Amino acid sequence: MRELFLTASVKDADFSMTCAILQGLTWMTARQTVHRILFFQGQPQPRSIKNSRAFQQSRFLPFWKELSNQLARSSYVLQVAYELSLDKDFGKGSVMDFNALPGTLRWTDLPDPLRDTPVTSRKKIEIPDQPALLLAMSDNGLQYKNEMIQESYSFVRENIEFVFSRYYYLPDSPGRPVSTLPAFTDLRPVDPAQKWVLNVKLNVLDDNQPDKVRKASEELIGVKAELEKIFDFKILDRRIFDTRIAPPPVIPGRG
């Protein structure tokens, strides 16, 4: 799969207004999601995935094989994401059994080389609904580094997704995920200014067809023109999205 997206930042004070604009544009109310994201760093030398217990019976076996091929050529940081409930999972003192819960394994490649366009294009693999992902990481020598909370609000118009995201630090817990989650209101945003990042996304399932990728890019440029008086979509250095390097450092949250 190839993911193409535009990127803009939105001040927290403008967030409600911009959500209202996108609600009118898409004729839908935003869907809020909160994910707990664990970062795992690959081994120093690239190595394909060995037959892990996590995916032996997976219906997504072709995705696992494709991911294995990617990891054989370069070492990457992988994300393991779990969707959370604001009411049930924060500040309750409960401990998550990661290997019993289904999670999503995320991998993204270094984006294509820079061009004079605000559209970022990169190869992506997401493997959803997978149990025992921490076992899979351990079986393959991927090392837990840190974790964050991701809060998102998404809108959809036809095949285009508009996603506001903001990240929060969790209290430092060297070597393993924090045992229990603090109250959501005690979390510290990664960005001190508390800005939101807006991504306007399109996915091309068959990334071996350049015509489809080009058409998706042109469609996003059309969205940029449609919204340019509201959002400033930047041309970004692809190194910002380089997952071949270490995950971001963790700063302890309040409480």
Rank of each mutant, 00 (worst) to 15 (best):
E219L: 03
P113D: 09
P210E: 05
G222A: 10
P118V: 01
K123T: 09
Y144R: 05
R157P: 00
Q130H: 07
P189V: 04
F184E: 02
D172M: 15
D207R: 01
Q130F: 06
V197N: 03
T120Y: 01
L220N: 01
R106T: 04
M137S: 06
R176Y: 13
M148A: 08
G93W: 08
M148S: 07
D112W: 11
E219R: 05
P192I: 14
E151C: 11
N159K: 12
S165K: 08
A193K: 15
K201S: 02
Q194G: 07
T104H: 10
P192M: 13
L142A: 08
V163T: 09
K212S: 12
V156G: 00
L181R: 04
T108P: 00
P192D: 14
Q143G: 06
N203S: 04
D129T: 15
P182I: 09
E147C: 12
T180W: 06
L110A: 00
W196F: 12
P113F: 05
L198H: 03
A183D: 10
P192S: 15
A136L: 12
I127P: 03
K201N: 10
D129P: 10
T108H: 08
T108Y: 07
V178P: 04
T104V: 14
L110Y: 12
G103A: 14
P171E: 12
A100V: 06
E126N: 09
N99F: 07
L134D: 09
L202E: 02
R176I: 09
L187V: 08
D206K: 13
L187N: 07
D191C: 12
D211W: 14
P118M: 02
D191F: 12
Q194S: 15
P118N: 06
W107H: 06
T104D: 11
Q209S: 10
K145Q: 14
F164K: 01
F155Y: 14
M96P: 03
V163D: 02
L170E: 09
W196A: 02
Q194V: 09
E158A: 11
K145E: 13
M96L: 15
Y144D: 04
G175K: 13
E158M: 04
P171S: 13
K212F: 10
T120Q: 04
A193M: 13
R188F: 07
L198R: 01
D139V: 08
G93V: 08
Q209V: 15
E151Y: 03
I160R: 02
F162I: 00
D172S: 15
V213Y: 03
E161K: 13
S94F: 11
P177M: 12
I221Q: 05
K123A: 10
N203M: 05
K123L: 12
R176P: 03
F98K: 04
M148F: 14
N146F: 09
T185P: 00
D186Q: 14
A100P: 00
S152K: 06
P192N: 13
M148N: 08
R166Y: 05
N203K: 08
L142D: 08
E158D: 14
I221V: 07
N208C: 11
Q143D: 11
M148V: 14
M148Y: 11
K201I: 10
S217P: 00
P174C: 15
